[in-house]
């Protein structure tokens, strides 16, 4: 009943998606060259086959592994740097020029060094993702800390919260958290885009990005398109799950359940 109602409310959206799929199928059949545009039905059957074979899971897990390494490192490095830059003016002035010089380099340009430094391992792939994700995290953490209203800091001081560590932990960090969460979200978006490129160099026999290149070489464009769509879906799921966790965590934290 509820689901039925929900679907009815989304009639326009569902119609739109269905129409796009129908047009895709018709165009693919008119062109009739599966290298140019595989049909929707061929993509669906390729997808089902991949799921049944169990290969897709291994690909997803492999890519997620690189992703977690890269994002985890980006959070571990980005948050402290952003915090220190946002809070201490001299650190900001010292570190900012270096960051502004490295930041514009596209993450993919680091691939050769990643392989030189880490070999053909998961860490090389993780490193490229790290480069993509770390700057949004630094910048948003920095902004969050920098924008902490003076009156909140002074309220804290008057209420007995006087040393820098306490002020950062109890006042600036909670204030900056929404901004930090935004940074991590943006960073994860950029990081996921780097997955395909990072896997280009056959770090493993599995992985969503690697499989795109692999099937492309064999001209299996239906499989290429399937992997592309899976990449998009996983990104969507990661973003939704993260938003959900942050909101729940944020609210719990606010009402003091976690503290």
């Amino acid at each position: 009943m509820d689901i039925g109602q929900g679907l009815r409310k989304r009639t326009l959206e569902l119609t739109s998606i269905a129409t796009a799929i129908v047009i895709w199928e018709i165009v693919a059949r008119i062109i009739d060259i599966k290298y140019i545009l595989p049909s929707f039905t061929s993509v669906v059957s390729a997808f089902i086959e991949l799921v049944l074979e169990g290969e897709l899971y291994r690909d997803i897990l492999t890519s997620l592994n690189y992703f977690v390494i890269g994002i985890g490192l980006a959070i571990l490095v980005g948050m402290p740097i952003g915090t220190l830059m946002g809070w201490f003016k001299s650190i900001d002035r010292a570190v900012d020029p270096i960051i502004e010089m490295i930041r514009p380099i596209p993450p993919l340009a680091w691939i050769t060094f990643a392989i030189m430094w880490f070999g053909l391992t998961q860490y090389a792939a993780g490193f490229v993702i790290f480069i993509g994700a770390v700057f949004p995290i630094i910048i948003n953490t920095y902004t969050g800390f920098k924008n902490t209203p003076r009156v909140l800091v002074e309220s804290g001081k008057v209420l007995g919260c006087v040393n820098n560590i306490d002020i950062i932990y109890r006042i600036a960090l909670p204030f900056a958290l929404p901004s930090i969460a935004t940074g991590i979200r943006v960073g994860m978006g950029v990081g996921w885009m780097c997955v395909v490129a990072a896997e280009l160099f056959a770090v493993s026999k599995y992985g969503l990005g690697w499989k795109i290149w692999f099937w492309n070489d064999l001209h299996h464009m239906d499989l290429v398109l399937t992997y592309m769509l899976v990449l998009g879906m996983i990104a969507l799921i990661i973003d939704r799950v993260f938003r959900h966790i942050v909101q729940e965590w944020w609210l719990k934290w606010q009402s003091g359940v976690v503290v």
Partner: peptide
Amino acid sequence: FQEYSLFPWR
């Protein structure tokens, strides 16, 4: 304080 100074996350 003159401005609203409560901690919004608490």
